[in-house]
Write a protein that binds this DNA or RNA. Structure first.
Lengths: 191, 191
DNA sequence: CTGTTCGCCTAACGCTGTTAGGTATACGCC
DNA sequence: GGCGTATACCTAACAGCGTTAGGCGAACAG
């Protein structure tokens, strides 16, 4: 087996990423150091460089993993059917995804880390995820690009307000349903 | 004159804040160091501690200044009159404020800096600014708390998407007007 | 059994925010 | 005008940061 070592290597990479996610969740997206990640996996900081080129490369891998998770969440959604129901489901799924891990959302949706730009591959994954979201909206007759942009703005806005201003409550969560109604009223699904 | 010195001190404080704003605008909200700020005002980093308790205190002063600026922008708005026109104006003013300085917006509207929480005084100012916004919306018959929350979510969402995904264009700016229409259709102003 | 690659280490660099301690200047007062 | 004090700044230094260089033992390939 030539890839025994390669598999072990990949497993360690995932272990490092898991530690980084954990720390980011506890202390904020940028509130952790490589030495802390190293501690969590039983290494010294310089050893991490055998698995990632630098700290930004860890952020990049987290970015890709985050969009992968969002892609899976979107793929798990029913397409077609009653537009009202489908839009309600996709809005709720997106909102839940956003508030479930605010650090992840900052990484995926807000440009928060000073020098960081996702790599081409990671960016492609983000694009594919948004394409998939467009398909879901398209399946219930929401096709105009402007309508999709408005949709993302409304629901990132709701989720972001929820996280920033009422982290332990549901003040904006309760607005998901009325928002879908508002959206549907102004953007009646095309046949 | 007992406060000659006090005035000079305050002037230096403002000079430091101006340098911090400049650097934050160029390199991102957290992309600058105290030594760079000190350089910009012709000092060494430790001397800044004569003016601010620590770096977070600089962020706090910037937070207060940012909300002060937003308060002035909101106060400059016409209240009462045709609801459609007023809402269009306030939406545009808020959107412009947000995109004019994305670093400022991250500081005011997103919890981005790992250990930072605004001081009580700064937070009060933020509250007063939002109260003022509520008054403006109330003046054209938007009074339900849920309607105000929805309003902030929609327009922070639009502006945030604009900044994150089309920083040099107007892809979401063009959606301000349709968004106001959408909002009005679902939230008809009370008499 | 040998040579190479891999996984991890220690030491160290320049940077960061921050503290301690010193010195010259500007002020209030007699 | 001279004196004592508070102020405005400095240098030196600390621990922690991301990162690089170089070394050593174990695991692998032939």
């Amino acid at each position: 087996m030539p890839d025994r070592r390669a598999r072990r290597h990949e497993a360690t990479r995932q272990e490092i990423l898991a530690a980084a996610w954990q720390l980011a969740g506890e202390r904020g997206l940028t509130g952790w150091s490589l030495r802390e990640v190293a501690d969590a996996v039983g290494m010294r900081a310089p050893s991490l460089y055998g698995y990632f080129e630098n700290k930004d490369a860890i952020y990049d891998a987290m970015f890709a993993q985050g969009y992968q998770q969002l892609l899976e969440a979107v793929d798990g959604l029913p397409t077609a059917g009653d537009p009202r129901t489908v839009l309600q489901d996709v809005a709720t799924a997106f909102f839940d995804f956003y508030v479930a891990d605010p650090a992840r959302s900052q990484l995926l949706f807000l440009r928060v880390i000073p020098g960081f730009t996702p790599s081409e591959g990671s960016y492609d994954l983000a694009e594919r995820t948004l394409d998939r979201l467009r398909e879901v909206l398209g399946s219930v007759g929401i096709n105009r690009p402007e309508a999709v942009d408005l949709w993302t703005a409304v629901f990132t806005g709701l989720a972001s307000q929820q996280v920033s201003n009422d982290p332990d409550g549901d003040r904006w969560a309760r607005l998901i349903e009325p928002s879908v109604e508002m959206f549907l009223a102004s953007e009646p699904p095309a046949a």
